[in-house]
Design a protein around this nucleic acid. Structure first.
Lengths: 214, 214
DNA sequence: AGCCTAATTCAACGTCCGTTGAAACGCAAC
DNA sequence: GTTGCGTTTCAACGGACGTTGAATTAGGCT
């Protein structure tokens, strides 16, 4: 048969991504996923070894591209500053804007994936391990850049500030609708440009306040 | 029989709190909960109507006290400033420190509950609705106080800044161990005094940067 | 036309799920 | 010491779970 298989595989991954993002790993049934994908249950086990394996495949599918755009943004910042150190805000923008731009420009493709990442990052059972596996190289590079921008900063301060940044970004990706309710429609969870305009400045000010009291 | 019942009920709630916090509503089985509580499965349905009802009871058990300590902290700030407006940082401290203090002083009691709240706040399926039900009155009061501290601020800016604050706090409560790995032991997820010393300053600087550029 | 292989369907397995009804227990009051 | 009631146990229900093996389909190759 022609490589129709890949088309089906992607449909399964799409369905799994959507459902896992909304209800979590345990909250979703393989049967639900395959109903959403419009395929027989057994096909899940032909294309993937197990439910857990399918979950990992969902995570891996977009991980490289996600990391690539962020590395590219950090590359660009460093090329812009061959001699001096970039500002804290520039570095934070390189860390956050590529993802916000993906979400803004292709929301349908990325919304569920980011919501899933957000859920994992916030989960006591998977947050510690999975996030470390996926994002440590990028985050270490980001931390190094920040360190060069604030040479006097204490490492403990830097890690905690990164933690606050990570939290703010995570809740953004979750798109829970909470801010819609709270603001009574004034703000929308999926308004990525509203975030883009505010998050880097907010976070950069926090970093400077804690790590660079000069 | 003597009111032994309440003791059992609390043991069930403790077990449910612990497991729901770690694995989420769907990731936990009533049988698991009752095994952890050391009681028969059927007792869950004698004391509560359903698994979902047990989940709600877990949430309700500590909700009032959680809100009380925060309202009291806001009361104290307002009494300290009968005529002028408190500073942004004072208000943010009233919003965050009561919870961080609960966690620091009685970690075993509150860790799982806060981790559960964090999970819910970050969840697309429950975050919007449950958080609104639980926390809206307090958050609105907090927003009003902030508004008085920065009368020129735009409401949209304020809501987004609150969103960043909520995210940073939420990831803190999740205690995922991520920062332990990233910092290679330099920082601990459960070090609430490290958070207490940094979070309010970080967030206050962000608020001022976005909402009060003067 | 006939074969090979990859893709898909179908039916089922053993297990565990949330939930329930009826029976047994233990203490207080009479 | 019997009655009564709140609590706890036991055994089971129908259904859904993750997973599998065998049968079926659909092209690409000779």
């Amino acid at each position: 048969m022609a490589p129709r298989s890949n088309e089906t595989k992607q449909r399964i991954l799409d369905a799994a991504e959507k459902l896992f993002a909304k209800e979590g790993f345990a909250g979703v049934t393989v049967r639900q996923i395959m109903r959403e994908a419009g395929a027989d249950v057994a096909l899940a086990y032909y294309h993937f070894d197990s439910k857990r394996d399918l979950f990992d495949a969902v995570l891996m599918r977009r991980a490289d591209h996600m990391n690539d755009v962020r590395h590219a943004a950090l590359d660009a910042v460093e090329q812009r500053h061959p001699d001096d150190a970039p500002s804290v805000q520039e570095i934070i923008e390189a860390f956050t804007q590529p993802l916000l731009k993906l979400l803004a420009e292709d929301h349908d493709t990325w919304r569920d994936y980011f919501a899933l990442i957000a859920q994992i990052n916030n989960s006591p059972q998977w947050g510690g391990e999975l996030m470390t596996r996926f994002f440590d190289p990028l985050v270490r590079r980001f931390m190094d850049a920040i360190r060069r921008a604030m040479p006097e900063a204490d490492d403990v301060d830097l890690f905690w500030c990164y933690h606050f940044l990570s939290g703010a970004l995570t809740l953004t990706f979750a798109e829970t609708g909470r801010i819609d309710n709270l603001s009574q429609g004034l703000c929308k969870s999926n308004d990525m440009s509203a975030i883009s305009e505010r998050l880097p400045g907010f976070i950069a000010a926090g970093f400077r306040r804690i790590c660079d009291p000069a």
